[in-house]
Nucleic acid binder design. Structure first.
Lengths: 216, 216
DNA sequence: TGTACATCAGTGAACGCGCGTTCACTGATGTAC
DNA sequence: TGTACATCAGTGAACGCGCGTTCACTGATGTAC
């Protein structure tokens, strides 16, 4: 018996179960949407009782928030992987990576943005912070492209770009109000970034034009 | 007794009750959000029984959809009121009017965009059509500004602009993920339109700049 | 190594509540004569 | 105008179901000696 902190058999099982529950919950949200997530379904699919879910997560919101937390983390990891050599390409890359991630995990992203807590409890700060950090990834390339702009303006611009791109993608993928065929979304996003950068006085990559070359 | 189609006393009462129910429901959605709308509350506040609500609307979705329908109608009316003399000013006007309407009726707009039907029944076509018509109001000014662009490109551009502005406003008003102080939202929208029009090669109004004049 | 006791995760039936929906009944309004 | 009957909106208690949550109990794992 060594004294190094070691996981007991109990703790290992508990940990595996926890992972299992989260995995199942994520699968259900991803496939059928947050509104279709039920404790009983999770418990059954995870091969345990509903009590165990409560044992591990306190309440059902705990499960949802864990999934959402991991969703931001995965998104952030993907965004961090965008090459940063060229700031213009980086901005395109961030937008396209967001699109790809959103398209692949639409219901997970919706869960992240739409989940409301019970009885007005506040949304966990760490998750909000991670979302902020994620779109702060636009700051460095923007600073490089607009060396004269101060921090406040960069921050505002990055919020604008994020919200705009988010709006185009989320309404676009919904296919309800704004009927854009999914295969055109990428083109639409590229066009958007192109035009917006041009408006900032930055020459874009000129992809998928309107027949109008920005800053020709 | 004349034969001209006249409303019976019964019909009048029925009609007033219907208006009353819709009015109450709108008030509740607007004040507390769609999720807080309950048949019993509506009936009590309207001074009738829950049965009457069902009598008039078939099911509860019927009430919600009626409110949503009137929301798009009100929005469209406001957007049609934007002066059309100058196409550039018209585009700014449409964006700002949308912002004002959204800010004043945030929960009604959210109800319009977020409401999902029970058991996958399709969302009523007339409402979807009205939303499409609303943002098709951008077409004429865009056509005037970009006479060389074909219809498809104009349509795509208007969808992009609508989604982007919608994203900026809806995330902005939510104050959760994207913490923009409400009084800055107007400035943010103006800046966005400014920059995007500049990117399209159109001189904007140059409001609220980044310290960078588009197409200087 | 073995035994006795302590701990604590796991269990799932039962609880409780919210809430949309129904339906047999009532009574006001409309119609016929 | 009055009376008798028909119609149909209005009523609200009761239904039914979904679903998050609890809790007394079980049994596996850990600890002490």
């Amino acid at each position: 018996m060594n004294n190094v902190q070691e996981e007991s058999l109990r703790d290992q099982k508990k940990f595996r179960r926890r992972l299992q529950i989260v995995e199942i919950a994520r699968g259900i949200i991803s496939a059928k949407g947050l509104r279709s997530l039920k404790v009983r379904d999770v418990a059954e699919a995870a091969g345990c009782s509903v009590g165990s879910v409560y044992n591990e997560f306190g309440d059902f919101d705990g499960v949802i928030l864990t999934v959402n937390r991991e969703t931001v983390q995965a998104l952030t990891a993907r965004l961090r992987g965008v090459p940063a050599e060229d700031p213009v390409r980086q901005l395109y890359g961030l937008a396209e990576t967001y699109l790809d991630f959103f398209a692949a995990h639409a219901n997970l992203l919706r869960s992240l943005f739409e989940h409301r807590m019970e009885d007005d409890r506040p949304y966990p700060d760490d998750i909000l912070q991670m979302v902020m950090d994620a779109f702060a990834l636009m700051h460095p390339p923007l600073v490089r492209l607009l060396p004269d702009a101060d921090d406040v303006k960069i921050a505002l611009l990055s919020r604008t770009l994020f919200s705009a791109v988010h709006g185009i993608i989320s309404l676009g993928l919904e296919e309800r109000m704004v009927a854009v065929p999914p295969q055109m979304l990428r083109q639409q996003i590229e066009q958007f970034v192109d035009t917006h950068l041009a408006g900032l006085g930055i020459a874009g990559l000129g992809i998928a034009g309107l027949g109008i070359r920005p800053l020709r």
